[in-house]
């Protein structure tokens, strides 16, 4: 790749050393590219080939002689296509006047100066960038818990894992027959606290008879068989 670029650069330099046509011959037909010191930005789009920002392209190699890319570029277009990759391409277009370029830049600058609120609505590119709009979980959280916290400026961090709050039920109570529960009384404790419910033994009357003894326990308990025989003989 580098070797090809070097070959291209050497070829361009070689062509630049060839005698130029006079200005009188060229100026009548084609406009020249503004000099590098001109305020109009000359940009090279390498990362985003789908977005054509600048109407004109100039490849600045160094502070050497001025390079005018006109027909020469057009003639080397096949070579450029050969050298460039699928996503890296030098876009050469017809040079335009300075005034339209300035207007384009002005529009771009106006976009950069948009307020933050509008900047958030900027649509994210198709690439791997995360969407600028808040995540749906955050929207659900705002619905469930309100939006007391200030909204985070700019892009939001990725959503955290964990349970999601259930979305509020949306049903027609007249159709389903479900009614909203009555609000808790004012004197009820806050739901965040747990209060113990103590169950005590409820005795109606302590004087009620609990044990009913019928008869008497046998008082006679012979320690020996012989004593029992004595008792039985005494009957």
């Amino acid at each position: 790749m580098i070797s090809k670029l070097e070959a291209l650069l050497a070829r361009v330099v070689a062509r630049s050393t060839e005698p130029r046509p006079t200005a009188s011959e060229e100026d009548t037909d084609k406009p020249t590219i503004p000099p590098p010191g001109f305020a109009a930005p000359l940009r090279v789009s390498l990362d985003e080939p789908d977005v054509d920002i600048a109407p004109a392209v100039e490849v600045v190699v160094d502070a050497g002689p001025e390079i005018i890319v006109g027909e020469a570029v057009a003639s080397d277009e096949a070579l450029l296509d050969e050298v460039s990759d699928s996503r890296e391409r030098l876009v050469a277009a017809e040079p335009v006047a300075a005034a339209p370029a300035a207007s384009v830049i002005a529009e771009v600058e106006e976009d950069d100066d948009l307020p933050d609120g509008d900047a958030k609505d900027e649509e994210a590119p198709v690439s791997s960038r995360r969407p600028v709009a808040p995540a749906p979980e955050e929207r659900l959280a705002e619905l469930a818990f309100g939006s007391e916290e200030p909204p985070a400026a700019g892009r939001t961090p990725p959503p955290k894992s964990g349970p999601l709050p259930a979305p509020p039920l949306d049903f027609d109570s007249d159709v389903t027959g479900v009614r909203k529960s009555a609000p808790p009384p004012d004197d009820a404790p806050p739901p965040s606290r747990l209060t113990p419910h103590v169950a005590h033994l409820q005795v109606a009357d302590a004087r009620d008879p609990i044990v009913d003894v019928i008869g008497e326990a046998q008082r006679f308990a012979p320690p020996t068989f012989n004593s029992l025989l004595d008792a039985s003989l005494a009957l």
């Binding site: 020996t224 068989f225 012989n226």
Partner: peptide, 11 residues
């Protein structure tokens, strides 16, 4: 001692 044996032992 059968005379002094308990009810359980005798039985």
């Amino acid at each position: 001692d059968p005379q002094a044996s308990s009810l359980e032992e005798f039985a």
